[in-house]
């Protein structure tokens, strides 16, 4: 009996060795371990074995089965690994072949710049609000301390719809509208389209965008304005950026300032980009004029505030080194794809 089992085992191992593909291994399994297999046949023949020997024989059969199975599994695993290896060898690809891209659209550079500005100010607790683009003269001028006959009204080359209604020349009227609502304190920015009657050329457009900023609270100071815009400039143009505040005049702020930042191309050394000065002008700002506060129903003895206005196109042109403003309104996809 023992010999027979040994025989079966030898033969099985020989057959396993001879098998050169998984199917043949399966044949071996069926032939020796299957329901009608040789080893099963031995088990079936147990009835002829003396009852006292049966456990021993049973154990022997099981050992043989385990031995065959173990070799069989090992062989199978080896074979499968070899096949997989072979397949992977076949599957080598040229990874430098062109990619399959989804067609993804691109955001307008103005919007990218705007979203950066929004992100900075929203992070500092500012609300982003909007106002009408076709606006009352009252809000665009009068409430901003620019009465009829004020030279600033002429300087701005306003498009008029009628005597009372204009295309807003600045986003500043949103200041007046928000202040009038009387909800204090105020921290807001107001981006949007503005219009001035400039002929189209590389640096002018009759329609462009501004971002207005306004903070009204108790004890807001010029130092707060400086600090805020310094943070803004560093966030937008990089941590090395320095700011310079120059006195200026706007009818709706007092004191007023224009702000330059160190040229981000040369870092302030002076280059062609900044016309050698090392500085680039980016915005106008100031402390909200007390008369403007009064006209909007806020007591200037209790509240103070600052306001600033940034030209969005100016930021976009500077940041992305776009040399012609007309590109922003042509919508050539070869331009837009670069952003």
């Amino acid at each position: 009996m023992k010999d027979r089992l040994q025989n079966i085992k030898d033969e099985a191992l020989k057959a396993i060795e001879a098998a050169d593909m998984p199917e043949k291994l399966n044949d071996v399994r069926v032939r020796f371990l299957g329901k009608k297999g040789e080893l099963t046949a031995v088990l079936k023949g147990m009835k002829d074995v003396a009852p006292e020997d049966r456990p021993k024989v049973g154990q022997l059969v099981n050992e043989t089965r385990a031995a065959i199975e173990s070799v069989l599994e090992e062989s199978k695993a080896k074979m499968e690994r070899a096949i997989r290896e072979e397949r992977m060898k076949q599957e080598v690809i040229d990874v430098t072949l062109p990619s399959k891209k989804n067609m993804v659209g691109h955001r307008h550079p103005n919007t990218i710049a705007l979203e950066e500005v929004e992100r900075i100010f929203v992070g500092m607790g500012y609300e982003v609000v909007e106002g009408p683009e076709v606006e009352y003269d009252l809000y665009n001028f009068e409430k901003l301390n620019i009465p009829d006959g004020h030279p600033a009204k002429d300087e701005q080359d306003t498009f008029y719809v009628n005597k009372e209604i204009v295309l807003r020349t600045q986003t500043s009227p949103v200041q007046a509208r928000v202040m009038e609502q009387g909800k204090l304190p105020i921290r807001m920015i107001a981006p949007g389209r503005v219009f001035r009657s400039d002929e189209v050329d590389a640096t002018h457009s009759p329609s462009f965008h501004q971002i207005e900023g306004l903070v009204i609270d108790k004890n807001i100071s010029f130092a707060d304005l400086k600090g805020t815009l310094e943070v803004f400039a560093k966030e937008l143009f990089g941590p090395e950026t320095k700011t310079k505040f120059r006195p200026h005049h706007f009818p709706f702020t007092e004191p007023s300032a224009e702000v330059d930042v160190t040229c981000f191309k040369c870092g302030g050394k002076g280059c062609r980009f900044c016309k050698g000065s090392g500085w680039i002008e980016i915005l106008g700002c100031g402390m909200v004029h007390p008369h403007v506060l009064e006209m909007c129903g806020i007591d200037p003895n209790e509240y103070t505030g600052f306001a600033f206005g940034v030209g969005l196109e100016r930021i976009a042109l500077l940041k992305y080194e776009i040399d012609d403003m007309r590109l922003l309104y042509e919508n050539d996809v070869r331009f837009l794809k670069q952003f």
């Binding site: 100010f121 929203v122 992070g123 500092m124 607790g125 500012y126 609300e127 982003v128 304190p185 921290r187 903070v215 609270d217 108790k218 004890n219 807001i220 100071s221 010029f222 130092a223 707060d224 400086k226 600090g227 805020t228 310094e230 943070v231 505040f245």
Partner: peptide, 14 residues
């Protein structure tokens, strides 16, 4: 002029 940031009541940016 020094540089400071506005103090006072916190506001929600949104």
């Amino acid at each position: 002029i020094p540089t400071t940031l506005p103090k006072g009541e916190a506001t929600t940016g949104k």
